[in-house]
Design a binder for these strands. Structure first.
Length: 661
RNA sequence: GCGCUCGUAGCUCAAUUGGAUAGAGCGUCGGACUACGAAUCCGAAGGUUGCAGGUUCGACUCCUGCCGGGCGCACCA
């Protein structure tokens, strides 16, 4: 089954093409209508009336005349300024659901077809730092990124999850220096709690002791150059951190394994060459500058318009920049301002990329630093290296091919990271465009580089979610707390269940509640983490939806043999029809979530669905219906509702469903 | 200062990307358990969508200017 919205859109486009010519058939607007008027509506007649110089209602009438929808809809009606309203026939709704229920494969997908245009999509999420316990700062990226991955995968895309672990940055210098002073024996730092405390000590010294800080920076350079004697220590820390992260990921139910780990250190060997490439290409007067810069590109891949900027000759300074050594002589005061095309230069000792549109508070060009004055690389460098790897590089070695076990090139990159990194990624993407690293090496298509940011987790006071002492809350403790609270409720509501099962339920409910609370909101906003609200049993919460699912399971447990025979679906009661109609809109919700990379569309849909199911449940007895045919008919509705909840909650949002709770 | 972002019912949030009379939950008030799980359901009250202009058949949505909150702005990630 394809989305009905998409189906009607096609049919309307066809009708418009027949009525007015194919050139008018693009950009047809079909969307779910207000239930009072229609299931779906086409709103193209108004705009079309404008461009054709005809009365919108007349346009609508002509569209309807050329429309062929009688197999799924009542005759379309025209309303208001020119809305074309569609009402699905109950016969079509019934047939479609019958078919889904009868076909195990369709049921397992709740009737949702795979996408026609499949891509290889990299989703970059989680990305914890090693040597530190995972804390709430990693929670949203992990949950949202995982849901986005699941949704795209469900639609048939090849998803490459990438856990861009922070394992090679500045913080390691501190750790190594501190370790040297402490003369730690191998294995002395096993548990992650030790590492965490140890990290804090090192961080403290780094802030207060300039000499220590200096030596720490030097230790990073050595590590990145492979000249460190601390590699063994680093490996040890890394192992323990990965073990800890995997434990958390498993508890959270993320589909993130060690095969998806590709830490910053993975790119270490590539960095010097990469930096050299950028320098050669973007240096003013450099080898690639003419081709790379003749057509500067905007953020969305279209040629950027810099016509509003003063016409500064971008090569004016080039006379002083012909030789490599001259790069050093770009005096900061003489940086062209504003920047009209990307270029690389040494500024204040660091190798930088300057891009149009970025200025600091003094209106001076603001750089993306790709190599520090002391020679160390930093996150912009590894992010660029990762981007290049994901799009451009042919993967030959088995470790490069992970997690797919074959060479791959991304068609799309998605970064699920904190909204505060917006400018960073914007600059990384612009740099990649300047380097033409966003051109797929095989297809020549431009690769979408999408930043999917999310807001902060706030406490009930509206300030960042922290412990009373001002530290970030550890994920392990957060999850423990959620499970304990959920466990209390389970024991209270259902004391007769065996303890092991109560334990299992508590984990599913506690973790599910946290995930659902995060996913149900539009990710771009901040959200308030308040325990009472998250673990509430009613309203739009995880526990409520899990409960709705268990109620259906309970019906099937009691149905027994009644459920055996294949059956017809007869939609008679309004509650039946409303439920059935909404079941068919699941594909639209999944499409919306995939389009916006916003899982909350699925949450909203599922919650509405449980509302329709509740009405049905109250008004239409299933097992105690008077006629056997009614029983089996209603069991079909239960069957498909359960399937949608299961696919939505478990497969797409990554929230466990339970037969009993 | 510049940039990004947000402002919708008392509170927490939706609104299918410009569509019809802006919807939910919580809270409040009032109802429903001798019918499939009451971790439930039904009903009621609650709005000048921060303010002021503009664009058009139509604006919570787009543009401009204010007001207010958050975040970012050179070698941390």
């Amino acid at each position: 089954m394809i989305s009905i919205e998409a189906d009607l859109r096609q049919r309307c486009a066809l009708a418009i093409g027949r009525a007015f010519g194919a050139q008018h058939a693009a950009g047809v607007i079909v969307k779910a209508g207000d239930p009072k008027f229609a299931d779906y509506q086409c709103n193209s007649a108004m705009a079309l009336g404008k461009s054709l110089g005809l009365a919108p209602r007349q346009v609508a009438a002509q569209i309807v005349e050329h429309l062929s929808v009688s197999d799924i809809c009542e005759p379309p009606t025209i309303a208001g300024p020119g809305f074309i309203n569609f009402r699905l026939t109950t016969a079509h709704i019934g047939r479609t659901l019958e078919a889904i229920a009868a076909e195990p494969q369709a049921l397992a997908r709740a009737g949702v077809a795979k996408s026609a245009h499949r891509q290889t999509v990299v989703v970059d999420y989680a990305g914890p730092n090693i040597a530190k316990e995972m804390h709430v700062g990693h929670l949203r990226s992990s949950i949202i990124g995982d849901a986005i991955s699941r949704i795209l995968e469900f639609l048939g895309h090849t998803v490459v999850r990438q856990n861009h672990v922070g394992d090679f940055g500045t913080q390691f210098g501190m750790l190594i220096r501190h370790a040297q002073d402490m003369k730690l024996a191998d294995g002395a730092l096993a548990p992650i709690e030790d590492l965490d405390a140890y990290y804090k000590q090192a961080s403290q010294r780094d802030k207060t002791d300039p000499q220590f800080a200096l030596e720490a920076r030097r230790a990073v350079v050595d590590l990145q150059n492979g000249q460190s004697q601390a590699v063994e220590l680093w490996q040890q820390i890394r192992r323990e951190s990965r073990r800890h992260a995997q434990e958390i990921f498993q508890r959270l139910g993320l589909k993130l394994t060690e095969a998806d780990d590709r830490g910053e250190s993975f790119y270490a060997g590539r960095l010097p060459n990469l930096v050299e490439q950028i320098k050669n290409t973007l240096e003013v007067g450099g080898v690639g500058s003419q081709t790379a810069l003749r057509e500067p590109l905007g953020r969305d891949g279209a040629p950027a318009d810099f016509s509003h900027l003063p016409a500064i000759d971008q090569l004016e300074a080039a006379g002083a920049l012909q030789s490599p050594q001259a790069t050093e002589r770009v005096a900061d005061a003489q940086l062209p301002s504003p920047v009209v095309k990307p270029f690389a230069a040494i500024s204040q000792g660091a190798l930088c990329v300057f891009l149009p549109g970025y200025e600091d508070k003094d209106k001076k060009p603001f750089p993306l630093i790709i190599q520090k004055g002391d020679g160390a690389f930093l996150y912009a460098t590894t992010d660029l290296a990762a981007l290049h790897f994901r799009i451009m590089e042919d993967k030959q070695r088995p470790e490069d091919q992970l997690p797919l076990h074959a060479s791959w090139h991304a068609d799309r990159l998605i970064y699920t990271t904190d909204a505060r990194q917006a400018q960073h990624f914007s600059m990384v993407f612009d740099t990649a465009r300047a380097m033409r690293w966003h051109v797929h090496p095989e297809t020549g298509h431009l690769v979408d580089m999408i930043y999917a940011p999310f807001g902060s987790m706030l406490g009930a006071d509206g300030k960042p979610f922290k412990t009373r002492s001002g530290e970030s809350v550890k994920l392990r403790e957060l999850l423990d707390h959620a499970e304990a609270l959920a466990g209390r409720v389970v024991t209270e509501k259902n004391p007769s269940l065996p303890e092991a099962q109560r334990h299992h339920i508590a984990a599913a409910v506690g973790i599910g509640a946290i995930k659902y609370a995060d996913l149900k909101q539009d990710r771009t906003g901040d959200y308030e983490f308040v325990w009472e609200r998250i673990l509430a049993l009613d309203g739009n919460t995880g526990p409520y939806l899990q409960y709705a699912y268990t109620r259906i399971c309970s019906i099937f447990r009691k149905a027994g043999a009644m459920d055996a025979a294949p059956a017809r679906l007869d939609l008679i009661e309004p509650a039946e029809i409303n439920l059935a109609r909404h079941l068919l809109k699941f594909a639209d919700a999944v499409d919306a979530a995939a389009r916006d990379l916003k899982p909350h569309h699925i949450c909203t849909y599922i919650y509405e669905l449980s509302g329709f199911f509740s009405a049905f449940y109250e008004q239409c007895p299933v097992l105690k219906a008077p006629q056997p045919a009614t029983v089996s008919s209603r069991l079909i509705l239960c069957r498909v509702t359960a399937a949608v909840l299961q696919v939505g909650l478990r497969d797409l949002l990554g929230i466990a469903v339970l037969d009993e709770m």
